[in-house]
Design a protein around this nucleic acid. Structure first.
Lengths: 232, 232
DNA sequence: GAGATGCTTCGGCTACGGTCGAAGTATGAA
DNA sequence: TTCATACTTCGACCGTAGCCGAAGCATCTC
């Protein structure tokens, strides 16, 4: 009976397939133009324009005009978290896409979740960091340890800079494919950026999946070993 | 481009006003009959029946037949968390209900969030517990301390019992009205149940809000003092 | 200027989903 | 058995929201 905020509005906003596809694509973290978003939504430009106007009015998207393009990004990290959490929930209820498709395994292995690494590799990285004592996992929260601070400094990440920002350093983000946590927050972002800088990995064009180079993959796996290969 | 799980389905499920109202009502934690849910949705029984069938098929609701009634509950704690997180998000974007209504202040003060205490009092309780060292807040996660274990034992909560269950003991749950965390998990549940048992508070009929008795309120505030009355 | 290119607005079509009345099933009460 | 209550199913209605073609701005290129 009309208690609390109106979830129906945002539910309906996300509830349209075209809009959902657009939002999912933007969870890749890159800004996309209206034309590109029309393509991922599988609709014409006019229709996309209407959808984008709604998403913008609803506060989910932030437009940025650049020349004759309009680039859209998710308004906020909280939007990304909402989308990801809905994906996790959808996966848990078996609301999968009709056909798995060829890209699905790549997505499960490694993908971008707004600005950090997700998928099997994202989960593995966090597990390894916790195992080696770089990050403390307390309850469902994460915290950087003193030892971890050194570790990241060695990798080439200036933790002091990250601490200066208002954004939380560590955040756990539930992975929809693995159903376990991976590392988000400014540290998660910095790590992924670091891999890109080193040439270990790169974004895959037109997808959220992340492609590792053969050498990059070797180094990544060496840097983040799993102690017990999961038998079960 | 069809990446990942299908969020559009659950978005659409939540996106209908009648269904959203039903879900919000069920976040109160109590099982409700189809007729009651029709009332909160503001629709006839036939329509409600159709909605409930969809919600059940989507895995959001769990029906339980009892005599000639069908009681519905949220399928899972994860559903409750999803709804609450969407409420938080909706509130942050200003998607409020049209008219605040007379019950709004009561909801903001103290309400049930699935099975634990939320609202101003819920946030206050967690703040106080953290301040007195009963609960550790690390990052965005919560953990019970040894001192806290004693504290709760004194109140009359057997922590050992709670630990035996698979459900996490402490969990932080973002409050949509306060925009800060309150305590969820089995400990949060046990605390609220404890207040009910002692007669400090009771559910308000037909609403999610929680009503404190004058004496109960005094004891609650004494048990969970705030150290610095927030000035800013 | 003329011509692309990117996007929005307008108008009209269509279909899907929510809605209810009426009839049908199941359970319980008298 | 009969009646009442709780709910579901059926069928029909209707409105909204998504969709596109065509035209209209705006911005860049030449």
């Amino acid at each position: 009976m009309k208690e609390g905020p109106d979830i129906a509005q945002i539910g309906a906003l996300i509830g349209d397939p075209a809009r959902a596809n657009m939002l999912a694509a933007l969870t890749g973290g890159k800004a996309l133009t209206a034309t590109e978003l029309a393509a991922v939504g599988g609709i014409t430009l006019q229709t996309a324009s209407a959808h984008l106007a709604k998403l913008e009015a609803g506060g989910l998207l932030l437009p940025r005009k650049q020349g004759r393009h309009r680039y859209f990004t998710l308004a906020d990290e909280t939007v990304a978290r909402l989308i990801e959490s809905m994906m996790g929930f959808a996966a848990s209820r078996g609301h999968l896409r009709h056909q798995p498709g060829p890209k699905e395994p790549a997505l499960r292995k490694a993908r971008i979740c707004y600005d950090h690494l997700a998928g099997d590799y994202g989960v593995r990285m966090l597990d390894s960091l916790v195992a080696k004592g770089a990050i403390d996992a307390v309850g469902d929260g994460l915290a950087l340890t003193a030892k971890g601070e050194d570790t990241f400094q060695c990798i080439g990440i200036n933790v002091a800079d990250l601490k200066a920002s208002r954004r939380p350093l560590c955040r756990s983000c539930l992975d929809w494919s693995e159903r376990r946590a991976h590392l988000a927050g400014s540290l998660g972002k910095a790590l992924l950026a670091n891999f890109f800088d080193k040439g270990w990995a790169r974004r895959t064009a037109g997808s959220r999946s992340v492609t590792f180079s053969p050498d990059g993959e070797r180094q990544f796996l060496a840097l983040f070993p799993v102690e017990t290969p999961v038998a079960a």
